[in-house]
Lab assay of single mutants.
Amino acid sequence: QIFVKTLTGKTITLEVEPSDTIENVKAKIQDKEGIPPDQQRLIFAGKQLEDGRTLSDYNIQKESTLHLVL
C-alpha cells in the first residue's frame, strides 16, 4: 500500500502493486475521493509523475507517500 497526502492534509491509503501505472493510481484516487484523474497531479520526491509510467519506474515502494496537487 502507499499513502497519498492531499493539500488539505488528508491522507488516503491505496492498495497498489509496483506494476501499477500512475494512471491506474489516479483512477483509484477517483474511486475513493471522486476527483477526476485529469485534475490530479501526483508528486513524489519533488517530481511530477507521468501517467504512462509505473510506480516501480519511480522507485515508489510500499509505505511511500505521494503528494496530490489539484
Rank of each mutant, 00 (worst) to 15 (best):
E17H: 10
D38Y: 11
V16A: 07
P18Y: 12
I22R: 00
E23N: 09
V4R: 00
I60N: 01
T13R: 07
L42M: 03
D20I: 05
Q48G: 06
T11K: 08
H67V: 13
L49E: 00
F3Y: 14
Q48M: 15
V25H: 00
E23T: 09
A45Q: 14
R41T: 15
R53G: 07
E63Y: 15
P37N: 07
L42Y: 03
E15R: 07
P18D: 10
A27E: 10
E23A: 15
I43P: 00
Q40A: 05
N59D: 09
T11R: 09
L66S: 01
G9N: 06
L68H: 01
K62F: 15
E33M: 13
I22L: 05
E33L: 14
E50D: 09
A45Y: 09
D51T: 06
L42G: 00
K10D: 07
S56T: 10
V25T: 03
V69E: 10
Q39W: 10
Q40S: 04
L14H: 00
G46E: 05
Q30A: 13
V16W: 12
D31L: 15
Q39D: 08
L66C: 01
T11V: 15
G46C: 10
V69S: 08
T65L: 10
P18K: 06
L55R: 00
K10V: 09
Q30M: 13
I43S: 10
I35E: 02
I60W: 02
L14Y: 02
E33S: 12
E63N: 14
I35Q: 03
Q30C: 15
N24F: 14
E63L: 12
T6F: 15
L70T: 10
D20C: 09
L14R: 00
L66T: 02
H67A: 07
E15M: 13
Y58A: 03
H67C: 15
Q48K: 08
Q40R: 02
D57S: 14
T13I: 13
L49V: 04
V69D: 07
F3M: 06
T21R: 08
Y58H: 03
E63W: 13
L68C: 03
A45V: 07
L7T: 11
G52V: 07
Q30H: 13
I43A: 05
T13L: 10
N24G: 09
A27C: 11
S56R: 11
G52T: 10
K5Y: 08
T8M: 11
G52L: 09
I2R: 01
K10M: 10
D51K: 04
G46M: 04
T6H: 06
E23I: 12
L70I: 14
K32C: 11
G46K: 04
L66F: 04
A45S: 09
S64T: 08
L66P: 02
N24R: 14
L7M: 14
K32D: 03
V25I: 13
D57K: 03
F44C: 04
N24C: 14
Y58F: 04
K47A: 10
D57W: 12
V69K: 08
Q40D: 01
Y58G: 01
I12T: 03
T65K: 05
V16R: 02
E33K: 05
I43N: 06
G52Q: 11
L68T: 02
Q1Y: 15
P18S: 09
E50S: 07
G9D: 05
R53W: 10
I43R: 06
Q30T: 10
L70P: 09
L68I: 05
R53N: 09
L49M: 06
K62Y: 15
T8G: 11
T11Q: 07
H67G: 05
V4W: 01
D51W: 04
E15C: 15
P37F: 13
L42E: 00
E33C: 15
L42A: 00
D51I: 05
T65I: 15
S19Q: 10
